[in-house]
């Protein structure tokens, strides 16, 4: 019993150290990526296209729906307490600080995290990684770093779009229910919105992007030989990403408000 616990702990610690080592390698190769000739430039562009641009539609729909719901609920509920001006504060906290980065990260995890893990896992099973190494290409530099940068950039850009659609796009929907002068809305919104709100959301987006990309690539490379390990790697990538995203969100929020 004690031996089993000790063995499990040793394996977990070893996996954690391996993961940290992998993360360090990714960071190191990322720095090099911008110095040397852009071997993986095309991979990066395609990653941003698939992860960022193709997720824009679903991201926009979510942002508009949530923003409109907050607008409608806030404009009907808060005046009952004489706190109408709080609607903008709530809108900014929910859209910019919390739900924007979080939902974007969930969408990217569900779409791109599984895709990256599955793709890399398949490459491992097909011995493509060995082929890259055989011709002198560093698989981390060529395969992981473009995905890492692509996911992080996509997260940041999608978070900005989420803010735009959540704060302004929802205004158009609200006009159908409760018409409000746009200048009044914008003035109130911009006087409540601060740069720290925007930067807080972007910081979360950056951290979530790092988490999703590193976890997905790590899980992709954790596949050994069998093709049945590929979907398992995808599932593990999603589950672990969700957990780490929520933990990171809580930690960042605590640091900001504590």
């Amino acid at each position: 019993m004690i031996g089993q616990i000790g063995r499990a702990t040793r394996l977990k610690a070893s996996a954690l150290l391996y993961g940290l080592g992998f993360f360090y390698t990714v960071l190191r190769e990322t720095v090099r990526f911008f110095r040397k000739s852009q071997v993986g430039y095309k991979v990066l562009i395609m990653q941003i296209l698939f992860t960022g641009y193709e997720a824009l539609a679903i991201n926009a729909i979510m942002a508009i729906a949530i923003g409109a719901a907050i607008n409608v609920i806030g404009s009907s509920l808060l005046p009952q307490f004489g706190q109408s001006q709080l609607m903008y504060t709530i809108l900014i906290i929910v859209i910019t600080r919390e739900l924007g980065p979080l939902l974007t990260a969930f969408v990217i995890t569900a779409r791109s995290g599984t895709a990256i893990a599955t793709q890399l896992g398949t490459m491992v099973v097909n011995h493509e990684i060995e082929a890259y190494m055989a011709v002198g290409l560093n698989p981390v530099s060529y395969l992981v770093v473009p995905r890492f940068i692509g996911v992080v950039v996509s997260m940041l850009v999608l978070t900005v779009y989420f803010n735009i659609f959540g704060l302004l796009g929802s205004f158009i929907v609200v006009q159908i229910v409760k018409p409000t002068p746009i200048m009044e809305y914008l003035a109130a919104l911009m006087s409540t919105l601060t740069v720290s709100d925007v930067l807080s959301g972007l910081l979360k987006a950056f951290v979530f992007g790092v988490v999703v990309s590193v976890v997905a690539t790590y899980q992709g490379f954790s596949v050994n030989r069998a093709s049945t390990e590929i979907p398992v790697a995808g599932i593990k990538a999603v589950g672990l990403s969700f957990i780490l995203i929520i933990v990171a969100d809580v930690l960042i929020t605590l640091v900001q408000y504590a």
Binding site: M46, I48, L49, V157
Partner: peptide, 9 residues
């Protein structure tokens, strides 16, 4: 792809 991504960013 380059143009789309550039415009997107």
């Amino acid at each position: 792809a380059d143009q789309i991504v550039g415009l997107f960013i």
